[in-house]
Amino acid sequence: MHMADALISPVVGGTLWAATAGMTAYCATKISKEKNDSLDSYKIENYEKKIPLMGVMGAFVFASQMINFTIPGTGSSGHIGGGILLASLLGPEAGFLTIASVLLIQCLFFADGGLLAYGCNVINMGFFACFIAYPLIYKKIMKGNYTTSKIFISSILSVVIGLQLGAFGVVMETLVSGISELPFSTFVALMQPIHLAIGLVEGILTGCVLSFVYNARPELLDNKQKEGGKMTFKGIVTTLAVITLIIGGGLSLVASSNPDGLEWAIFNVTGKEELKSDSKTSEVLSGIQETTAFLPDYSFKDSEGEVGTTVSGIVGSAITLGVCALVGIGLHKSKQKSHKAN
Rank of each mutant, 00 (worst) to 15 (best):
I179C: 07
S154P: 11
F212H: 09
I179M: 13
L175H: 14
K230D: 14
A216S: 14
F152W: 11
F187H: 09
S154F: 06
L157A: 14
L205Y: 08
H195L: 06
V209G: 07
I204Y: 04
F212N: 08
T206R: 09
L190G: 15
L182C: 12
I204L: 08
H195F: 11
S155D: 00
L205W: 03
I204F: 10
I153H: 01
V171Y: 02
A216M: 08
P193R: 02
S180E: 15
G207D: 01
I198D: 15
R217D: 05
I161E: 14
G203H: 03
F168E: 10
I179F: 06
V209C: 01
H195E: 07
K224V: 08
V170P: 12
D222Y: 00
I194L: 04
L220T: 05
L182D: 10
L205S: 06
P183V: 11
G203M: 02
L182E: 08
Y214L: 09
C208P: 04
E181W: 11
S158Q: 03
V176G: 03
I156T: 10
G199S: 09
I153M: 14
G199Y: 04
I161S: 11
H195V: 00
L165I: 07
Q225C: 10
P193I: 06
Q192G: 05
L220F: 06
V213M: 04
G178T: 13
S155P: 06
S177K: 14
P193D: 01
G166D: 11
E219Q: 08
G207I: 01
P183Y: 12
T206S: 09
G199T: 09
N215K: 15
R217W: 02
D222F: 01
S177N: 13
T174S: 15
V188G: 06
L157G: 07
G199C: 05
E202M: 04
E181C: 11
D222C: 00
G228D: 08
I204A: 13
A197N: 02
Q192P: 06
G166K: 02
R217C: 09
G228L: 05
